[in-house]
Design a protein around this nucleic acid. Structure first.
Length: 202
DNA sequence: GGATGGATCAGCT
DNA sequence: GCTGATCCATCCT
């Protein structure tokens, strides 16, 4: 069954996808939220990408799957959620870094042990809030537990900045490949003075 | 608000 | 052994 979102991922370059996913709805079970922050990882040539230099291991195998493949990467205690954005064999992806909760807020707060922006304002945080684990790795979006409804709400303004946690890697460090809804309070490192009263939505 | 260090662990070299 | 696509508490200014 062909999925509208998967078609779009398959046919759209990764940077455009990273921006286009802002405002889309992430749904897992009874929980849902709006994607407000993403990062683009551009495959073999991207020193910050897990597929840099064509690296292909058991852990990152999902990156080489078809567009719409979910790539869950575990780092220390936490899992990180990615969506493969290109056809089979092209290991590019978008990392979902932050989400604005819509449904299942009480459940997310319980799983996180925290409330407010601290629930989902980071890639590890949102996976814990939505109970996304390695069990979801290599599944196809919209066909397993993890769903993305697209398009969703429209951001007023999309901001670009360098990616987080990518030090000393030249162009990979400085390139503005992180995208977020400007003024949204759930963006991972947002300053209070930058928060917009309308949440950054149109 | 910004900087720092510790927790913690699987996977790769 | 070493290393992170992290998070949090705890300083300091």
């Amino acid at each position: 069954m062909t999925d509208k979102l998967i078609n779009w991922l398959d046919q759209t370059d990764t940077i455009t996808v990273a921006q286009g996913l802002l405002g889309a709805v992430l749904e897992v079970g009874d929980c849902a939220g709006l994607i407000v922050e993403t990062e683009a990882y551009l495959g073999e040539r991207d020193r910050a990408a897990h597929a840099f230099g064509g690296r292909h291991t058991r852990t990152n195998a999902a990156l080489y799957g078809p567009a719409g493949t979910i790539y869950v990467y575990q780092m220390r205690q936490y899992c990180l959620l990615n969506l493969v954005t290109q056809p089979v064999g092209v290991p590019q992806c978008v990392l979902v870094r932050a989400v604005e909760p819509l449904l299942g807020v009480a459940e997310m707060a319980m799983r996180r042990g925290r409330s407010g922006p601290a629930m989902t304002s980071g890639p590890g945080k949102l996976c814990q809030a939505f109970a996304i684990t390695l069990a979801d790795n290599q599944q196809l979006v919209n066909q397993g537990r993890v769903h993305v409804a697209w398009p969703g709400r429209a951001p007023l303004l999309i901001a670009r900045k360098p990616r987080i946690g990518v030090p000393n890697k030249g162009e990979a460090t400085t390139a503005a490949l992180r995208f977020f809804v400007a003024g949204n309070p759930y963006v991972s490192d947002v300053k209070k003075t930058e928060i917009n009263s309308n949440g950054g939505w149109q």
